[in-house]
């Protein structure tokens, strides 16, 4: 597969990969790195890419697994402390700036969700995948996907109502 051909296959969904990575890893730089890593991995496999029925689903699964690994290894290493300290400062500044910004609230509410719910919500409400695709991607049963999605949406609603009735949180 030539470079141009590869790009034409990958272009339509590269933003989706990035958004999923960002949802999971939060930091923009890390999400960019992760996306680049996935795209390079795909490129290295470009010979066998024609065999995959659905390159997009395959790439999304790769991204999901890569980011989860990334989170796991970050939790295990000491680096996390340094990184989160650094992050904390910047978000607290951001928090002040975004105090009135409802999108900022939503961003933070989504950050609080468990990873699985986060991903299901991202795949459904942002990327609008249908249930079969989400089941395949997440390796979950349809009922489990529905439960996770419903819980995620309800948690978001609860948090929003809290913010809404208290005013600025």
């Amino acid at each position: 597969m030539k470079q141009a051909e590869f790009l034409s296959v990958v272009m339509p969904f590269k933003d989706k990969l990035y958004r999923l990575a960002k949802r999971l890893l939060v930091s923009r730089e890390e999400a960019e790195d992760a996306t680049q890593e996935i795209l390079l991995k795909l490129w290295a496999k470009n010979e066998s890419m024609a065999e995959y029925k659905n390159v997009e689903a395959f790439a999304m699964t790769m991204t999901k697994n890569f980011c989860l690994d990334r989170l796991k290894s970050k939790q295990a290493s000491n680096l996390k402390l340094v990184h989160s300290n650094y992050q904390d400062e910047s978000t607290s500044l951001q928090k002040q700036l975004e105090a009135e910004d409802s999108i900022g609230w939503m961003e933070r509410i989504m950050e609080e969700l468990p990873e699985q719910q986060k991903m299901v919500l991202q795949l459904r409400d942002v990327e609008q995948y249908d249930f079969d695709e989400i089941c395949a991607l997440m390796e979950m049963k349809p009922t489990a996907v529905r439960v996770a999605l419903s819980r995620a949406r309800k948690t978001v609603r609860q948090e929003l109502i809290k913010k809404h009735s208290y005013g600025i949180g």
Binding site: D15, Y18, R19, S102, I103, M106, M110, V126, E127, L160
Partner: peptide, 14 residues
Amino acid sequence: PMFNFFSNAKEERY
């Protein structure tokens, strides 16, 4: 905010 966020999040580009 919820629905606005989702349509907004979709606009993010790599």
